[in-house]
């Protein structure tokens, strides 16, 4: 198992670490038993994600994917952030070892959870299909 330089860069000096006290949306996914939890905070202004921060408990790839994923949605419209796939995050990191792919799935789910929270809090109508019940975290491990 080997990490790309990009992963190590984002792990050694992760971007957007922290919390947003008056966040418009907060999403938390993962669980302690599995060894990774991601919590994302977003600030939304006029449909644009003006700020995003994360707190992550997890391995190097969990921290690196959190860093990269938050970079990728910062300054983007909420609708676009929802389209961010784990595949895009993995590609931006120049790949992840196969056993670590679930970490990128977690990042995608954390963003979706934060956006859903923002929609719910603001009474914004949305397509429920976009937020289907989280696929089981354990399954990602087995898929990986």
């Amino acid at each position: 198992m080997e990490y790309s330089e990009k992963v190590m860069e984002h792990f050694a000096r992760p971007h957007n670490v922290g919390k947003i006290e008056d966040a418009d949306g907060v999403g938390e996914v993962g669980n302690a038993k599995c060894g990774d939890i991601m919590k994302m905070y977003i600030k939304v202004d006029d449909g644009i994600i003006t700020d995003v921060k994360f707190n992550t408990y997890g391995c190097a790839s969990a921290i690196a994917t959190s860093s990269m994923a938050t970079d990728m949605i910062k300054g983007k419209p909420v609708s676009e952030a929802l389209k961010l796939t784990n595949k895009a995050v993995v590609e931006a990191l120049d790949g992840l070892p196969a056993v670590k792919i679930h970490c990128s799935v977690l990042a995608e789910e954390a963003i979706k959870a934060a956006v859903k929270d923002y929609y719910d809090k603001n009474g914004i109508e949305y397509d429920k299909e976009l937020f289907k019940e989280d696929s089981c975290h354990y399954e990602h491990h087995h898929d990986a």
Binding site: P14, G18, A32, F54, N55, T56, Y57, I63
Partner: peptide, 11 residues
């Protein structure tokens, strides 16, 4: 450093 960014530690 790890605890400062850990939602588990916060909990």
């Amino acid at each position: 450093r790890l605890r400062s960014m850990s939602p588990l530690w916060e909990r």
